[in-house]
């Protein structure tokens, strides 16, 4: 159980100050003259800031934009956002570390979020997650995570693959997912949530109308 000596290292959470030199003063708002920001990132962040009564509200959209460009919330990415928004990198780090979708370390390009929350795990999501991990065989291009409820329990077990919801998944789909991603094809198109129709019998007026028309 106790492979970490709980108090031996002086902190309950080892590594919380790893990247920090505690003797240094915290970084201030970056100087625009010495912080190059890609113009498209700058305009995206400025457009987001203009949408809100308080520019700070744009922190999450700005971090999304920076992460899209850099692949993760690298110190450089945070610096650029901080420079455009006139905030400290520390503020943005505090925000970014709160949210699951921001990465504080480099990750693979393809996001495979397998929902392993209660409804999906009742239908075997943990095995699907393991199968996808096996199929990817440690390829660093894949960012495979077990995720909390993604809000698609009707297609359980499901996964969000580069933002596209697919399900219900079977163990055999794991290979397909990896192959489709490697080939740059849309993943498991027939299982995409866009194609799913309502299962509520009372909601299917046009569906029955179509069938009537065909008959």
């Amino acid at each position: 159980m106790s492979d970490v000596a709980r108090f031996g290292h002086g902190s309950r959470i080892p590594g919380w100050d790893d990247a920090v030199d505690l003797t240094k003063a915290p970084a201030g708002v970056p100087d625009p003259a010495t912080t190059p920001v890609p113009p498209e990132l700058r305009s995206e962040i400025e457009a987001a800031m203009a949408k809100y009564p308080d520019f700070r509200s744009a922190a999450i959209p700005a971090l999304h934009a920076a992460q899209k460009l850099h692949g993760w919330c690298s110190p450089e990415a945070l610096e650029q956002v901080a420079c455009v928004m006139r905030l400290t990198p520390g503020y943005l780090t505090a925000v970014a570390t709160f949210y699951d979708m921001f990465y504080m370390e480099p990750v693979g390009r393809h996001r495979i979020f397998v929902c392993t929350n209660i409804s999906c795990s009742l239908r075997g999501a943990d095995a699907v997650h393991d199968a996808i991990v096996d199929a990817a065989a440690g390829d660093p291009d894949f960012n495979i995570r077990s995720f909390e409820c993604l809000g698609a329990c009707d297609i359980a077990p499901m996964a969000s693959i580069d933002g596209e919801y697919v399900g219900p998944l079977e163990l055999a789909d794991a290979e397909r997912i990896v192959e489709d991603l490697r080939a740059g094809r849309p993943v498991l198109e027939e299982k995409n949530i866009r194609r799913r129709r309502s299962v509520d019998p009372g909601a299917r007026r046009s569906a029955t109308r179509d069938e009537d028309a065909r008959a």
């Binding site: 409804s119 239908r123 329990c153 009707d154 359980a156 309502s198 299962v199």
Partner: peptide, 14 residues
């Protein structure tokens, strides 16, 4: 109502 888990036809029903 979102019905999910161990049922045959999970989904949203009004």
């Amino acid at each position: 109502v979102s019905v999910s888990g161990n049922v045959q036809s999970p989904g949203n029903f009004e």
